[in-house]
Amino acid sequence: MQAVIQGPVYVVGDNIDTDQIIPAEYLNLVPTIPEEYEKLGAYALCGLPQDLYPVRYVQEGKLDSVYPIVIAGKNFGCGSSREHAPIALGSAGCKVVVAESFARIFFRNSVATGELYPCESENRICDKVKTGEVAVVDLDACTLTVSNSGKVFRLKPLGDVRPVVDAGGLFNYARLAGMISGEARPKANQPGNRTA
């Protein structure tokens, strides 16, 4: 994937759990079936309470979001082990979630699927940026820059997980690294990377 991700940000608070990322009623969708993968994207973050989040991450009737960058507070992705969570975000077009901290399984699932980069910020950002502002995430420089204000926030290095997401997930990475046999799947054919 690219080292620089630019676009409008979608901002959420602390403890956004997997039920808010993808409500349980949509877990009947199987992510490895292409039409159902697409549909999961339409529901990404639709469990957020409307009074706190009047702007939806994905507009009603759309499959994709206009926000490639999600900014969150602490403990993003807590709760269930459902891989549908990073997949719904990735399917909707999210490329990176920048959070103060992540819950363990969500972080791991993001990396294993290669759906998105789970980046931790050095300081809390979610109170200082608003949904719709344009920002640039530079994975090499480890920064998030808000385009209008020029304000720069530091990100923690992704370290060993970056090449796994770059490769398109655990299996592709393991094949490229010679850990398992077979050819890596071309990323363009992998659901979630169709726009990458």
Binding site: P31, T32, G79, S80, S81, R82, E83, I105, R108, N109, A112, T113, G169, L170, F171, I180
Partner: peptide, 30 residues
């Protein structure tokens, strides 16, 4: 287990943890 509450089996003095589909697919094969 592909469920976060797999940790329940820790009651039986074992290491039990929840994982995602991709990790579980890897375990199924290897």
């Amino acid at each position: 287990g592909t469920d976060s509450h797999t940790c329940m089996a820790g009651a039986f003095n074992e290491f039990a943890t929840g994982i995602g589909n991709t990790d579980a697919g890897f375990v199924l094969g290897t």
